[in-house]
Write a protein that binds this DNA or RNA. Structure first.
Lengths: 152, 152
DNA sequence: ATGACTAAGTTGTATATGCGACTTCGGCCG
DNA sequence: CGGCCGAAGTCGCATATACAACTTAGTCAT
């Protein structure tokens, strides 16, 4: 069962053009850069993102975070659980009731402040890897996809 | 504990500039587009990517796949396990020896062929969401990050 | 040839991610 | 006021992802 002509064409087309292949690879490589830089601090870039989003909102309702970050509610629920366990987030009321709001704890704020140098280093490395035009393009794309637009 | 000036600046800087935030959001949104389109076929875009990569190589050694896809060896090991279970990949020898090679099964090839329309639809939708210049930029970035370059 | 070293793969553990099903509040309608 | 409905959250399940530790199989030097 060798690659017949039609198969090869399809395979080459997907491998050569697929947007998802590229987006996913970029995600792995870039996330690794930030994770590596942040590792000494015990936080991952996914968690730092969430921490920043909550900090930005002051008091964040889970459903709003989901809209802003384009994350599924069940995913957010579990991410928050881990971060509460780490002492970086707290909710009011503590139990997963209905109109709970999330807040960054003092420990969370402290961690964020201490993370700055590592974040800056990762950001510089990512910029170098991607190139300035690429960075601009990513910002443009993320904006198109609704970054920061609660109303999806 | 309200947002003091310094905190707000740091938070705004990260939220406003962080490359990882954007890359990860793009990844979630775009992967969802492909996953949704492929769902009726019972395959995910991550798996389709792997299937295509193996098909392209003909006979693929895991370690080479890891280099090409920039995936950790343990991740690949488990992804392959699932895909063997689904009958899309086979290895020779079957047990996880040393110089095993992976091959796409006839069922895997058939699935790939049947997936084409869904993939094309997802590709079109992703292009629309991202915009033509953005698509070009993503290709350029992925190339810079070594897409298709076995030697990392 | 044999022992040391190294590279390749697997397994344990943890997090990230999403779908589907379920639960439980809140608000609205009569 | 009481019941219904829909939205918000949680939980079960499956996969994707990576690090650390371990296993094993080639390789290489003597």
């Amino acid at each position: 069962m060798k690659r017949s002509g039609a198969d090869a064409k399809l395979v080459d087309r997907i491998a050569g053009d697929c947007i998802a292949v590229r987006v996913r690879l970029i995600n792995r490589v870039i996330s690794a850069v930030y994770d590596e830089a942040l590792r000494p601090l015990g936080i991952r870039i996914s968690q730092a993102n969430l921490l920043v989003a909550v900090a930005r909102m002051g008091e964040a309702r889970p459903v709003d975070l989901c809209k802003v970050l384009r994350i599924e509610k069940s995913t957010l629920s579990r991410d928050v659980e881990v971060m509460k366990g780490n002492g970086w987030l707290e909710s009011d009321p503590p139990v997963g009731g209905r109109n709970q709001v999330l807040r960054v704890t003092p420990a969370g704020r402290d961690l964020l402040a201490r993370s700055r140098p590592a974040w800056e280093a990762a950001q510089a490395e990512a910029s170098r890897l991607i190139g300035a035009p690429g960075v601009d393009a990513l910002k443009e794309i993320a904006g198109r996809l609704g970054l920061g637009t609660p109303a999806g």
